[in-house]
Amino acid sequence: MSPASTASRVPVEERLFSLVLALLATDAGLTKAEILSTVQGYRQRYSRSGDNSNLERQFERDKDDIRELGVPLETIESPGESGNNQNLRYRIPRGDYELPADIAFSPEETTLLNLAAMVWREGSLSAESRRALLKLRSLGVTSDDPIVGYAPRLRVRDAAFEPLSAALEKHVIVRFGYLKPGEHDARTRTVAPIALIQHRGRWMLHAADQDAKGTRNFLLRRIVTPVTTTNTRYEPFPPEAMTAAIAELEQIWRDRTALVEVVPGSDAATRLDKRRGTETAPDGALTLHFSDLDLFADELAGYGPEVLVVSPPELRDAVRSRLTRVAVDHG
């Protein structure tokens, strides 16, 4: 039996678990050769005299996978031997691996975290939440009351979300085709992602545009090509960059208002009145806040004759031309 087929009997999780245990137990670190020749799941496939390049590649992939799970696998150079790859030593420093002893979660907090995890029902964030909950359960706290009759949910339907979120994590520049409203062709943007933000129910990428030299917000639904991830890394942005972006979005929303007339008792009157920040004039006209003129025009067009935009003129024109377009498309 060849070494490879013997090794396939050691399940992947057993190999990864054994690797984590071995690297946690060592202070000085283990060299790659030591790992491959002694750790369960590798040693079965290790050849003392032959070529171990397949096994080395396996180890490289395992390292990446383990790090992605939040295990701080670190590399240290042997003193006086910098630059010699074969003598790099690997270990998992206990202090960086273990949850700090003073972090505990109360039953109420556990309930809240269960709910926060439930919010993600699809995509990679749902897998991340599930793993986070396993770690939370590890602490042994049970939630004080089960959540009944409650199912808040966030969705990530834009195809661009997953690659952008991976790029954000790895701090690498991305490229994508972005179609601005009113333009016919998508333009390629090269950006350094700063944050993914859901504002008013829509996902947005806040990023540093490499060509325009400034930060921009990109609506994920206007990204019309697959996202290309480059190998170019960028310096991570401080958390304040995201806070500032959120404040800016909020400010834009606050500054932009529209005056609309609604048919009393209609769907538009009922629903628009309930939007955050809406003011109703004595004559029933509504002052509404919005972030993006084109998206807001789409939304208002859906109400058909129930809404008449009074101002601003750009919004009035946008809604009118949309309705005309829909009528023509269906004529």
């Binding site: 939040g70 975290l113 709910l115 919010v119 590890s138 966030l154």
Partner: peptide, 25 residues
Amino acid sequence: RVAIDDSPRFSAREAAALIAGLQYL
């Protein structure tokens, strides 16, 4: 028991997923 003394930390993305969920709620 060997090697393990305590629960593992959250990964950056795990913590981010829960934090964003909390923001929403």
